[in-house]
Simulated assay, not measured.
Amino acid sequence: MRTILKYAFMYTFAVMITSAFLTAGPQKAYADNHYDDKIEQKYEALKEYSETHKGEAVETARELREDIDRRIDTLENRADEEWDNMSSDAKTKYRKQMRQLRHQQNEISEWIGELKHSTGEAWEDVKGSIADSYEDTKEYAEDVADNF
């Protein structure tokens, strides 16, 4: 009888754990998709802001920069988890890619600083540079994650 109860308990526990993981997956996917949609909207909005909406444009550019920060943090956390299992070559490649991502991240910050003070034709150029830098950095971060 004890053996039957023991197996019944283990089965029930396994079903509960499996259910929790299966349920969390779609919710996380929805949350990620919702977040990505919001970021995409901000990216598109940045390209449309006029100089008269400079404050909103700067705030939107900062939010895009924070998205890059989040992507880099995710990669760093993933590397921390896998570091002991990574080969020497993989570690070297990772460090090089992260240096490049940080460089691109800093460029976005510099463009944001320029955006605060730009006017006229320079406004459009700087705004476009932020959008281009964001898109390039996002794609590079996705490539790093895909090839991790």
Rank of each mutant, 00 (worst) to 15 (best):
L75Q: 00
G113W: 11
E142N: 08
D37F: 12
D125M: 12
I112L: 09
M16G: 13
W111N: 08
T18Y: 07
K47E: 13
R99H: 11
R95H: 12
D80W: 09
R2A: 15
D32K: 03
T74D: 14
F13G: 05
A57M: 01
L5R: 11
E63S: 09
R62P: 04
M86G: 07
K38G: 10
E56K: 05
L75S: 00
E81T: 01
E107V: 06
A29C: 02
T3Q: 11
Y11P: 01
Y49L: 04
E82C: 03
D73E: 14
T74S: 11
D146M: 08
W83D: 06
A20I: 05
M10T: 06
N147L: 02
D80G: 08
E121T: 04
S133A: 15
M98I: 07
I108L: 08
Y49V: 05
I108A: 00
S50D: 15
A20C: 06
Y11H: 05
Y134L: 04
K6Y: 07
E110C: 02
R78L: 04
T60A: 09
E142R: 11
F9P: 01
D125T: 12
M10S: 04
E124P: 13
A122Y: 13
N106C: 06
A122L: 11
D36A: 15
N106H: 10
L5C: 13
M86S: 08
E139T: 03
K47G: 09
A20H: 06
H53E: 15
A20Y: 15
E81Q: 11
L64W: 11
K6Q: 11
N33K: 08
T3P: 04
L115N: 10
G55N: 08
D69I: 04
Q97M: 05
I72E: 02
A31S: 05
G128C: 06
H34V: 04
L101M: 13
Q105A: 01
S118P: 15
A24Q: 04
S19K: 05
T92R: 14
R2I: 07
T12E: 09
Y49A: 02
N147M: 00
A45K: 02
A131N: 06
I130T: 02
A57H: 01
D132K: 07
S109F: 12
K42S: 07
R102D: 12
Y134D: 00
Q104L: 14
T52Y: 15
S129G: 07
A145H: 10
A8E: 13
T18D: 03
V144C: 00
F9A: 08
